[in-house]
């Protein structure tokens, strides 16, 4: 499982990196970015889903 942020959709609402700072970070403009290649483990998947369910722009995608 991998998580990614669509940079075209992300508006920098800032929810992902606040909820899951181990999975997401922010860039100089405050947009959300995925740390590393976005691979999720059994330990991080729920947190990634929580971040996803809090993104007002629906910019976070979790894929097999």
């Amino acid at each position: 499982m991998k998580v990614r942020i669509d940079p075209e959709i992300c508006q920098g609402q800032g929810r992902c990196f606040s909820i899951a700072p181990g999975i997401f970070d922010f860039d100089d403009l405050g947009s959300g970015v995925v740390i590393g290649d976005g691979t999720l483990t059994n330990d991080t998947i729920e947190l990634a889903r929580l971040a996803q369910s809090n993104c007002p722009e629906h910019a976070i995608f979790i894929e097999e």
Binding site: Q13, C55, H58
Partner: peptide, 17 residues
Amino acid sequence: ANRHAAFGLGIHRCVGS
């Protein structure tokens, strides 16, 4: 789960959020 829109949505998302 709280996808609220308090800071707006889209390109005008509150810069000061």
